[in-house]
Write a protein that binds this DNA or RNA. Sequence first.
RNA 1: GGGCGCGUAGCUCAGUUGGUUAGAGCAUCUGUCUUACAAACAGAGGGUCAGAGGUUCGAGUCCUCUCGCGCCCACCA
Length: 784
Amino acid sequence: MKEISKRYNPQEVEPKWREFWEKEKIYKFNPKAKGNVFSVDTPPPNISGRMHIGHAYSYSHEDFIARFFRMRGFNVFYPFGTDDNGLPSERFVEKKANVRANRMDRNEFIKLCIKTIQEIVPEFSKDWKNLGMSCDFSKTYSTIDDHSRKISQKYFIDLFEKGHAYRQEAPVVWCPHCQTAIAQAELEDKEVETLFNDIIFKLEDKKDLIIATTRPELLSSCVAVFVHPNDKRYKKLIGKYAQVPIFGNKVEILADKKVDPEKGTGAVMCCTFGDKTDVEWFKEYKLPLVISLEKYGKMTKQAKKYAGLSIKEARQNIINDLEKKKLLIGQKKISHSVNIHERCKNEVEILNSLQWYIKILDKKKKFIDLGKKIKWHPPFMRARYENWINNLGWDWAISRQRFFGVPFPIWYCEKCGEVKMAEEKDLPVDPLTDKPKGKCAKCGNSKFTPEKDVMDTWATSSLSPQLALRLFFDEKTSQRMTPMNLRPQAHDIISTWLFYTVVRSYYHFDKIPWKNVMISGHVLDPQGKKMSKSLGNAVVPQEILEKYGSDALRFWSAGSSLGQDINYSEEEIKMGQRTTTKLWNAARFIGMNVKKAELLKSTDTIEPADAWIIDELNKTIAKTTKAFENYAYAKAKEEIDGFFWSKFADYYVEFVKYRFFGEDVKSKKVGEKTIATVFFNIVKLYAPIMPFVTEEIFQTYFKHFEKLKSIHISKWPEEIKLKKSPDISDFASAIKAVDEIRKHKTKNGLSLGAEIDSIKLKTKVNLKKYGEFLKNVGRAKHLK
RNA sequence: GGGCGCGUAGCUCAGUUGGUUAGAGCAUCUGUCUUACAAACAGAGGGUCAGAGGUUCGAGUCCUCUCGCGCCCACCA
């Protein structure tokens, strides 16, 4: 047998096989290969940061499944792409190059973005390769490349033509810091301290009406005052008018059930727009639109003497002025939560502006129904999807007043404003530099204004099945391959990526995008807190990979069931490392004792111990296979671990030793075959979780079993059937007897290898059948 | 306030449709260098299954309520 290293060294072994897999194209997708296709809609990681531990965790999960199905004989379509447009990428480039997009030339900035991305993507993708991902990296997409822009624009045109996309001037969630509209899904909450101000509005009879507000700076946008219809204090005021302090205009006092009489003074001003309720009232009561806030977050002329001030400055100045006029009669410190933009963490406003939308509100029920057609792993994650849809309050705003994104393929007629779409054969287009063909369909004019906005990054990534499929297939085949088999992702983007992909798939193809979704949890620190750079409790996967290797990291990832958050535990990673060591040692043991490994033949005559381990193996194969088929990789790992450590290593290896060192050639031979067969299967069972050590063992010891380049394209284990097999119904008693002998030795401080003269067994065991076996395994001369 | 998940040994978790004395790993303690492995092995101790009530011959598992933790959403006047 080959001379091999005594210790397993992942730092040496892992790069070797990684290069080998790439060179030999082990994971290359072959459209003509046999077997049913199993397709994965791989999440394109966002390039705005390196792979973090949460990525390592959830990408491991999908790779387990992809590897399992590959070995199960499926033709696995497992593509890779990167998400590299939109605000996150802009912010990343701004930070890296120390520039601000809105202070530089648009084209220069876009060029800088593209250059930066080209520089970093190869290094960025390396982390995913180092993790051992079995994607086909030979063709990849980026959500900003020509390929993706073309698809994104094509399907936008499709939406428009089908009437699912519309442009409208309406209140929209606006980020004054990023100076763009954003979607509801991009909001986060933040708890802030603020002042609740009681302000006097004068009534027509000169009496006071006190309203409470946290946003006095919006007084100039006040268009009504609302009270609860049953509020006795205000009932008689309904329909009358109140005068807005400082600005002097009169607004009607209206009644609406949304007013909470308990809150503040029970009278509330409605401004266009302070919050979502204002928008609802604005629409419902057809209130006038009075804009006091412009897109940079500064006060407009409407705010008169406060024009040009920031929100905070205006608030302070108005409070001061109200105080001077004795119109501010109370102030209370409160803490409330406000919506912030997830990308920049700044408070958002609601602004009236012209934006493109994709209709979603009118199809809520449909999207919920589609969700029911998808198989969710774990099932309870569907509730989050439905919960999100039920709470949706806005259509999907997809235009962004930004620079680095997929442009809308649109011009507007200068004369009549009619939309002019690009033609499909010209895609991708940039309306800022490309000219539309032909004349305005409506008025015949031939001068056009380009659309400057770009699309929300999700508007492109929600087409990820198409982005991936079209790398390898024509349009017809791509559509035939939808729905894909699996969408793997983490739970934080159910309301964005997952939901939007369902929306797009429905509008374009009237189909669900995938048959299964697999939702991973998050990684928490050992105390159960969220890991984040800012808290300083984040672990860096690159360091773990370097120190312990990918197999060990993946082993840890496999440790919690699907959808569960996991606490980071270095101990568990060490356990993975120990498993690789244990596997390596077991392989070495076989290498030392078995000259040339052979597999059992169905006609071989085996001994009871062999039959027992084969039986246990068969049970393990059945359970592991079922678990993996249900995406329950944690259960699969548990089964394999249990069999390998507690059945194979702890017992079977000890059962077979005496035969290896003894004289009975026939018994020795069948023992050799059994141990090789069983261990070979163990290595295969572990292959999806720990691809490197299993490849090393396969290549070193078992390559001659199957004429294949890699274990990862070998056949998944199946039940081993032997024509004649001894009865092992009483083998448990033999194991019990072995335990008893071990206990006896431990109690007496003897080493397990020590020979003992005789032992009286309490265990009832058939000594005729197992006497010799027990004497040999237990190294006892006599048994009673 | 709504939705979802979780609460089992010191720690991390497993417990399939309710069915003997509740399991594993880590940690602890005691032994053992035994021809794969001391990064190992053998053995031992350790649990009112968050709490209360209910259904049942029988509940960690089903139902109701309470408490605690986490996530998502709403609340923003």
